[in-house]
Every structure is written in C-alpha cells, then in structure tokens.
Design a binder for these strands. Structure first.
Lengths: 316, 316
DNA sequence: GCGATTTATGCAAACGTTTGTATCTTTGCA
DNA sequence: TGCAAAGATACAAACGTTTGCATAAATCGC
C-alpha cells in the first residue's frame, strides 16, 4: 500500500506537506496541493485511518450499544443513526448486549479501547444504574436513547412514554373497555415507570378506578406476559395495555388458549406491534445529531397512535 | 490513560516485556506476567487497540455492508453475525448502502482504510457486477451473503431461493389457485433469477402453463409492486408469488383498491412478511463463521414455508 | 565445572500519520 | 534596496504498540 512517504518521495517533498495538502490545510500552495492530489490518485493512495487515529488520539468511529440488533425498534434506531453519522463522515461500530449488563460493560470497554469519538447507548434492561458507564467511558461523549439513566451526563433521547401510554389506554377506554389491566414491565427502567404513569392518568381522567392489582410488574418476555395474561383474565379484565411488545405476544397466547377473541371480547394495546409508532428511526437520527452537535439536553420523541382492529370493540 | 510504558516504568522493566506478558507470549516468566497483570489492573490500564492495529497492520474489526439496517431480513443477519464475531473477539463496523452502488463503493473504501480483518457484504440491488469490490478490497477476506456475485472470490452464503420459490408457488397451487403470476424482481440479482426458476418449476411440475406475460420484472419497491398488481388483476390472475417483500405490499394495495379479498379471491405468497422463513439470523451467523474459519465455499441456507391465512383458499 | 542450550529480558526499529517549531523563500512596503 | 511580514515547506517528535534480534541469565549434559 502506498503511503504519504511514497508520494512525498515521488514529488521530492516531505510527508508533512503531503499530509497537509491532503487534509486541506491552508498552509500549502494550491499548486502543490494539486500535484499531491494527482500523484496520490495515480499511485492509488488510500489514507490509513488507523495511523491517523493513533496520532490524533481519537477516531471517526461512533460506538452504538443496544440490547438486540434485530429487534425492530433498535434496528430502526441504528438505521437512523448510521445514516446521519455516515453523512458526517463517521462510521458506526455496533455492539449488542443481549440484555446483559456484563456484555454492556464489555462493549463499552471495547469501544473505549478503540478510542471512539462517542457512544450512543440504550441500556440492558437489568442494568441497575449508570455507574459502570461513567467509570468506563470517562470523558468520551455519551448519548443515551430510549433506555436512559437521567443522572448520567450527556444528551438523552427518549420517547414520549407517558403520553404514549396515555393515548393507548384512552384508546381502549374510548373503544368501550372498562376493566383495563397493564403489563407494566420493569420499574428499574424510567421508560416503564413513565408508561405506568400515563396508563394511570388515562384511567383517572376517564373516571375509572386505578387498581394496583391489575398492574402486572416485571413482564417483558413472552413467558411472563403469558402468565400475566392468565392472571388478568382471571381477574376479570376485558383489556390490557402492555408496556412492552413481547409481553403482549405472551398475553395473546394466553387469550388464544382460553378461546377469548381479540378485539371482540378483549382489547389489547402495545407500544410496538405497530399500534403505537415510537419513531425509532427518528430516535436514532436524533441520537446521532445530538452527538454531532455536542448536545447535552434531553429530547422527547412523540408517539403516534395507530388505530387497529385488535382494540376496536365498537367498530368491528 | 496509562500505557505499557507506564507499567514498565513502575516495574522497572521494558515495554516489550509488558507487551509480551499481556498478550500471553510464552517468552515471559510466569512470575513477571503475574506482576504485570497486577500492576496493569491497579493502574487501570486499557490496551490501545488503535496503536496495536497500526503496528500489526490489521484490526479486529469486521466490516458489514448491507442495503438497509432496518430491513427485518438484514437486521437479523447483522444480529447473527455480530453475536458470533463478538464471541471471537471481533467487532462489527456497519455500513448501509441504501441500495446505491456509489455508497457501496464508499463503504468498502472506508472499511479498507480501517484495515478491517474482513468484510461481510450483501450487494446493493443495482450493482451490475462485483468488479468494484475486487478492485477496492484487494486481498481483504470477503464473505458475500444473500445477494452474491458468483465470480467474486471467497465464501458465499445464500438462501435456497429456487427451493423457497418452488415451495411457495406449490403452496398456492395446492391451495386451489390456478392462474398464478409472479413479481419477479431484478434479473441482475442471482437470487431473483433462482426464485423465478423455482416458480416456473412448481408450475410445470403441477402441469400448469408457464406464461411469460404473467412475469412482472423489475418489481421490488412498493410502487412497482402496485402497478404490477394492477396488471396481474387485469390479466386475470387469481394469485401472485412475489419474490420480494415490498413489492407484495404494493400488490396488496392494488388488491384492496379493487376490492379483491385475500385469500378468498386472491392468493399471495412472498418470501418475507413471515410466509417464508429465510433464516436471516442463521445466514448472518454462517457469514461470520465463514470469515472466522477462512471458508471459501458456498453455503445454502434452507427456506421454510409458513402456512398462513393469506394463501389458503380452501380452509378459511 | 565448562561449553552448549534454553529461557527471559532488553534494545530499537518499525507501523503511517499529524503537528509544533524552525527554516527558508517570497512578497510588500517605504 | 532593505527589512519586516507572510507564505510555504522541512524537520523531527510524537501516538502506543509489536516484534526480530541481541544479550544476559539460568539450566543442562557430560
């Protein structure tokens, strides 16, 4: 591979001038620059970014850490982030944690070792707090999205969880359901706490009682959703607002097993399965923009309700 | 940040010994190694992989180039590939091409500049051939998946396209449909050619005529699928096998507009939308394994038919 | 107990850039 | 014409590793 040394030798100048010429430094004559660019092209020169990064102490790589790449929500986030970063000349190094804090720590260390320019992070669900992040990342810029710890520094991008849950629950109420339970998710995650608040507000605004017994906590996987679904049926619910998408699948399993029809006998609302558009692509874009612009604020991405059969009791 | 120099100074030895101790070189005394590891831990040493990569001339990064990250198929591929690569100590640098050859070229150049250890690639749909890849990548190991050019060197992972199309088409025939057209995609892509073959074979094996007029080429986007759908209706089709997922969405639009019910009046089979499981996650895993093991062969991932309402004319 | 072999460490040169400082050349102005 | 300022390039030292070769120390065979 040809290096700037080779180009310098070929032109009878020094590597420093070649470097400056190629990086657009104004301290080189226009004539020299053109000559350098020409020779570089002719010799098939490709800049070694590894060497450049070493010298500069930072890279044009941004790390993205997410629980699972192939979850629709996160793949959209990455898609949005990558396209924005790519525009700005950055590349994206992706690490998935499979919802494990240990893997998250490992991923952050790897990224730190690569001296990434910044990290876009959505936490593993069982991460207790952001201490591990602070310790590992040091002063590497951090942008959190979707699953965030408010006390960590740097920009945060979150969905309008409370609002979304409110809209979804109100939709169930307007569709005629009256005893609405919720698959609430983990209260360690801010996002789920907010959704529970939204759910409760919708009930209270409609004059319906908020019943702690109909709140099924720690439901996030399909299995726990299934169990909670059975309990909700047993408790006489006629609808469920599920704060997570996978638990909703479990609830559907339970309903099917009991021969309960959706939406005729039972209403179901869930943030994914396309009933509540969380705009994940835009969230990823926003995270990337936040990094590029050095933002440190919190942005809230709106959630949009999509009316669907599975929750329309009135209109068949 | 502490370097191996700092550790060496602290222990009164040289950086070379520290380097060897940390990288498991057998040429250091066990005692020394332990001392080095201890001091490294105490001083919070983190290896600078950028420097190591520069010296070694290669990195532990594998580039993954795909058309769109947030397409379900590709996000699953990446998910599978990343988890396997991560296990082996590699990280994944992701580039999406948005189906543009120019972006693909740019992505490959970037990866080459990062001196990646290898590239997993699925081509942009309008890539005419693999010449650009050969030229840019040189001797960087290349693994192609899903959309491959047979004449490029290195391992290839493809779906059983012909078989999948055959199964899907036969399913339509068995469900009672008789005039089955196809949204065939681009014939520049090997995958689509094979699917067309499978479609044709299924018809002929069932004693049904293969009618070139019912083959709608260059359908891949929703819009072109819509137009082809209208033509198919006009031509009297009672079913369609769509080689692509997005064109099928367009066809559904066309059917809805005409008030034609699926599956009562019209059958529809498509590789995604979960009617034909292409095992993308496994494909990604296979690609990563192929890289790690230095394979150069072609692997075929089977396709599995998932029976669904939208193509069951008999059983409502 | 001595030379030969093995084992452990040190030395120093890379890897390909970038960049602060110094040097040389040109230009501008009086 | 001379001197200062600006403009262009050169010099050389980093960035933090890795690694071939040399050297020193320890072990072994006889």
């Amino acid at each position: 591979m040809t290096t700037i040394r080779d180009i310098a030798r070929a032109l009878g100048i020094t590597p420093s001038t070649v470097s400056r010429a190629l990086s657009g430094n104004p301290r080189v004559k226009e004539e020299t620059r053109r000559a350098v660019e020409k020779t570089a092209r002719e010799m098939g020169y490709e800049r070694n970014v590894v060497a450049a990064n070493l010298r500069k102490g930072r890279s044009m790589i941004v790390g993205i850490v997410i629980p699972r790449i192939h979850r629709e929500f996160f793949s959209n986030c990455i898609g949005g982030a990558e396209s924005v970063l790519n525009q700005a000349g950055y590349s994206a190094l992706i690490c998935q944690t499979i919802e494990s804090v240990e893997a998250e720590i490992q991923a952050l260390k790897t990224l730190k070792n690569y001296r990434v320019a910044g990290v876009l992070l959505s936490h593993a669900i069982n991460a207790p707090n952001g201490d591990h992040v602070k310790e590992i990342l040091g002063n590497t810029p951090l942008i959190q999205f979707d699953r965030v710890f408010p006390d960590l520094p740097g920009a945060k991008i979150v969905g309008a969880n409370c609002d979304g849950a409110y809209k979804a629950t109100r939709h169930l109420i307007e569709a005629g359901y009256r005893k609405i339970g919720t698959l609430a998710g983990y209260m360690t995650s801010q996002a789920y706490v907010e959704r529970l608040v939204g759910y409760r507000m919708a009930l209270e605004d409609a004059g319906l009682p908020f019943d702690e017994k109909l709140v099924y906590y720690n439901t996030i996987a399909r299995e726990t959703g299934y169990e909670a679904g059975l309990k909700a049926i047993g408790a006489g619910c006629d609808a469920l607002y599920s704060a997570g998408a996978f638990s909703a699948l479990g609830a559907i399993d339970a309903l099917k097993e009991k021969g309960i029809r959706v939406p005729e006998d039972f209403g179901l609302m869930t943030p994914s399965l396309s009933t509540l558009n969380q705009h994940p692509f835009e969230m990823g874009e926003a995270a990337a923009h936040a990094f590029l612009e050095g933002r440190r604020d919190t942005q809230v991405i709106p959630m949009e309700l999509i009316e669907r059969q599975s929750s329309n009791k009135n209109k068949t």
